[in-house]
Write a protein that binds this DNA or RNA. Structure first.
Lengths: 359, 359
DNA sequence: CTTTAGCACTCCCATTTCCTGAGTGCTAAG
DNA sequence: CTTAGCACTCAGGAAATGGGAGTGCTAAAG
């Protein structure tokens, strides 16, 4: 059943007041905030209704109202006003993103820290590469016992490894090996590099010392790790300032949960590309997150990297501001990393997608 | 003044009891623990003396005794019994270290997590490379607009970068460039790569497109970042289980402090190679660590990497167990990474070095 | 049917009071 | 120097108290 306009106003007032104060909200406060032309008693009647419908609850009789997960959900989906970032905020984000040069994992960790700074909630990032294949293999001869393998992967990533061997080989052998690898190993997924392929290569090139398998081994290792997801978490300490985490035990549980990258990775799939997703309290799959909320924004870089950036906080979270900020960061990331490609559709526009529940 | 044997026994009993219980220790408890042939009253007299000398203090009259920083210091320097690791513990450490293959920063982060697991205190790691120079430069021609720079550094690290350019060049130019770079840029510290050197190289090789400065730029960037220290912190959440960090504010301050890698780096220099260093409470330079203790063990790998691994905890810390574990991990790290070189002197032996104060 | 004033009621929470017991310091005797 | 005895101290938990914010209900007014 659709709520009346007035009830929506009241619900919004309760949510926003509670987000600020963390205290149960009474009828009088609602009146001030919502600016309605009625008496507290009327508000109380409406509150009772919202309570009955499951949008609000009372910690105890004779206390004010607190939003339920359902209440937050409605707020996020319909009631929340879009928060515009100030110029200084957008400037700051853009500047920080642009000033960055360096490895992808460092970048993501820094972006996470930025999200923490901006929102004052713990931030997490997940990044994954789309499965790569090898485009080109070079072998650089150093001396009779050592050489460097240089792999060019799809997405223009370059990987290398220095190999020392206890026996000597010739520069010519390396040249032949690289020719064969470029002919037979490029474009292959990791599971296509079988031991059959390796032994036949060995025979073809006349390698009796196992150089082929050293190189093939590095190929496999590289392909496997290249698709591994990287995660980062920052700003966990900020939880401790929040009233809902004054209980050290509660804080401990959540921080501990966040400190395991497996748990972070598990948040993948909660979000599709191009939107901001809000998971409120019990909408979270993980038990440890059941009384917290997670806001996730996804980005996609041009070179096959895609990922999420998100924050974790109490259900009483400033969704509007957080979503706007994350959306802008993720958008900026897509723009920055996807340099050259067109900015993804919907960049800059805030689209919220909800949990699985009907609301 | 040297303490009498009995007082030492009593001090040890107080420290060890307090480490276990986190409660002020009374005369009766000391008696049980130290196993002396006297009455509680005698103990009390001795406690008064230890109190007067500054080794112990009372939270309030009519409470038991708690060690002071000075008391802990004496305990660590003289009274602490060396803790032997059980076989299963040493096995576990060795196994985990050996099972690792991968990048150095990942390894260090994992080692930190291991230290956290073993000690249940937050762990930190710092690793730094000794300043590198370039041993060899290779340029791999991909197509008329792109090539890969491959740098071999001292310490056998290899770095690479893929360069796309908006104009075209010939494979021959690359060949000449790499020859010149190998002739003029190898063995140079970063600050020796001046713009004079770059322009004269440009002239020598006939490069009018700025390829030289692209490559030189990558050289400089690589040399600069290669000496940068990496840090990791893990297990901060464990603080919250400790009675001394039940105050969320206190925990927040410390965790926040630990989350800034600058602060972690600042711990470098607190430790020399080959020993375990214990910094007790006020012995710490940083204000935020003044009522915590830090135990640091250093390691040195063969390839120019050196670093520290340490834990942070309350002054009431099981120094003996922590020092033994960290020492073993650091020793194992030296052994593992310094593969081939002789194990560093003193490996396996526990040598504690104290703070700056006389004790 | 909705709104509102009035009012009794509930119950959280901060404050105070009280009490217990562990542990002390002191004294005086062994 | 050691020890038994004893009065004293004080943290911290339990119980008691009071204030106040906010409620739900009723009945009258719109």
């Amino acid at each position: 059943m659709e709520l009346s306009e007035r009830r929506k106003k009241i619900l919004r007032a309760v949510v926003e007041e509670y987000i600020e104060s963390a205290e149960p909200v009474g009828s009088k406060t609602v009146l001030n905030r919502a600016g309605l032309n009625c008496s507290p008693a009327t508000i109380r009647n409406e509150l009772v209704a919202l309570d009955r419908e499951g949008y609000l609850e009372q910690p105890h009789t004779s206390a004010g109202r607190v939003p339920t997960a359902k209440g937050y959900r409605l707020y996020v989906n319909e009631l929340m006003r879009e928060r515009e970032l100030s110029d200084s905020e957008t400037d700051e984000i853009t500047r920080k993103l642009q000033s960055h040069s360096g490895r992808a994992d460092r970048l993501m960790a820094d972006v996470g820290r930025m999200a923490t700074e901006l929102t004052s909630y713990p931030a997490l990032t997940i990044s994954a590469m789309s499965p790569a294949t090898v485009k080109r293999v070079d072998l650089i001869y150093l001396d009779a016992n050592s050489f460097i393998i240089v792999l060019l992967l799809t997405g223009d990533t370059v990987k290398n490894k220095l190999v020392h061997l206890p026996f000597s080989f010739t520069e010519d052998l390396l040249r032949r090996l690289s020719a064969v690898f470029n002919a037979s190993f490029t474009g292959l997924m990791e599971e296509k590099i079988t031991s059959d392929l390796i032994t036949s290569t060995e025979r073809a090139v006349g390698d009796s010392m196992g150089l082929t398998s050293v190189i093939a081994g590095f190929l496999i290792e590289t392909l496997m790790t290249s698709k591994g997801a990287g995660t980062s978490v920052s700003g966990e300490a900020n939880l401790l300032k929040l009233p809902e985490f004054q209980d050290p035990d509660k804080a401990h549980r959540l921080i501990n949960y966040l400190s395991d990258s497996q748990n972070i990775s598990a948040l993948t799939g909660s979000s599709d590309f191009g939107d901001v997703k809000v998971l409120i309290g019990p909408e979270n799959a993980a038990l440890e997150l059941r009384d917290s909320s997670v806001v996730l924004a996804s980005f996609e870089a041009g070179d096959g990297m895609r990922g999420l950036i998100g924050v974790v906080g109490p259900t009483r979270m400033d969704y509007s501001a957080v979503a706007a900020k994350l959306s802008y960061i993720a958008g900026g990331l897509s723009r920055l990393l996807g340099a050259g490609s067109a900015p993804p559709a919907g960049f800059g526009k805030l689209m919220i997608k909800g949990g699985d529940k009907d609301v």
